[in-house]
Design a protein around this nucleic acid. Structure first.
Lengths: 222, 222
DNA sequence: GCACCAATTACAGAAATCTGTAAGGACATC
DNA sequence: GATGTCCTTACAGATTTCTGTAATTGGTGC
């Protein structure tokens, strides 16, 4: 079983609850907690420098703003930063989020190892999730498996995500084309972008760009 | 002090926590709890029919989906429905939500009496909130008061909200104009709508409609 | 009545969106 | 090498968006 774990969760009660489970149910005792993303990152880096790496990160997605100013404000940034110094760290996300597309995105884009949805069954799910991840499995939450038929039929690739994000930021197709060219991402012609966006229209059943952005915002994809 | 209170909150631990506070700190003992919106509504209606009305509703905003199919899925619908049978019931919302504009919207549009943000200070805040509401005050959370300078300088009226919602649903200005005309809402000329939307651009610092919808989705206004 | 202001409406033009068609290149299969 | 498919690109036209200006309306106070 894992022997050294970091728990990043700003809601103190939940934080303590997770630690209690790790202690009592899984016999893990070398646990550090962090209520802020930055704090979690620092603890992680220190352990890495001291050659005493954590083997597992359990993190929330959303961290409340507060008097302490943070450079990182979400679990996603934390995961990215930690993976940059320790690429193979196992990551379990423990969050309120229950939108399938968003959770899917975490698995596909950030390669998290497990996801547990805050809720009634959280304790049981967390234990099986940790056990599974320790065995090297990818642990999807039950909600996701059951609703997989409603989920994506095509895979949105990186370009699709870029387009959605740029549109949501109010850039015109022309501006997006120039940006893509500058970053040497192809395709970058205006009509190729048009086609991609039209495909997204079809896929999300959107009437136009504005509608499309509203839909993906609701799904939590951007 | 209030003598009869309903607590609507799906997360069981939080639910019990609230009841404990009401019992011990505020000496309120006639408390009913509900883990589903529909359940809360039914309890409310029964008490109303029996002439033993609740004096206070404490509710979460988001309720998880579940095997039980619900007609109401959010605290907002619950508030609307309960207010329709008992207009002057005091309502305190207890939620994760911490976006000022969204919370403001609850006060302005749904006339809630108090708001408490889930988090570190929740116990203390809930007690002062209930005390204040009992005295007839409107209890805004500290976060809102401190950030009031960043908050709205203009009030978004009903028409603004309609426009935002219609845009988010992908309707063109022409379609919106026709809809408004059909509902006899004025102004309903295309250029008046243009002007209103342009004002929203200025206000939310949006570059275009798509950007505007992305911003108000992030703020949780629609 | 009259001046004044704000909001609504009408109109117009430049820019952007959306939807087609068509041509070219890359790649696999036969 | 020929064929077909998929993706990119170019181009065009209708529609919509966005931003101006100017005319009209309605209400306010003097």
């Amino acid at each position: 079983m894992f022997t050294k774990v970091l728990v990043a969760e700003d809601y103190e009660i939940a934080n303590q609850g997770i630690i209690k489970i790790l202690n009592e149910k899984l016999d893990i005792h070398n646990i550090q907690e962090a209520k802020y993303c930055d704090d979690a990152y620092l603890k992680f880096r220190k352990a890495h420098q001291d050659q005493e790496e954590f083997q597992l990160l359990i993190t929330d997605l959303s961290f409340k703003e507060d008097h302490k100013i943070q450079t990182r404000t979400s679990g996603i940034e934390l995961i990215k930063d930690i993976r940059s110094i320790q690429p193979h760290i196992k990551v379990i996300v423990y969050s309120q989020e229950n939108r399938p597309d968003k959770i899917n995105m975490l698995f596909n884009k950030f390669h998290i190892n497990g996801y547990v949805c805050k809720g009634q069954q959280a304790v049981k799910e967390l234990i099986t999730c940790i056990n599974g991840v320790h065995e090297g499995k990818i642990m999807q939450p039950p909600e996701l498996i059951n609703s997989s038929h409603t989920s994506m039929t095509i895979q949105l690739d990186d370009l699709d995500m870029i387009l959605l994000e740029e549109l949501a930021q109010g850039f015109t197709k022309k501006e997006i084309r120039i940006k893509l060219k500058k970053q040497k991402i192809s395709p970058n012609s205006e009509s190729a972008i048009d086609k991609r966006v039209s495909r997204l229209f079809d896929y999300f059943k959107a009437k136009n760009s504005t509608h499309l952005v509203a839909i993906v915002k609701d799904l939590g994809l951007v």
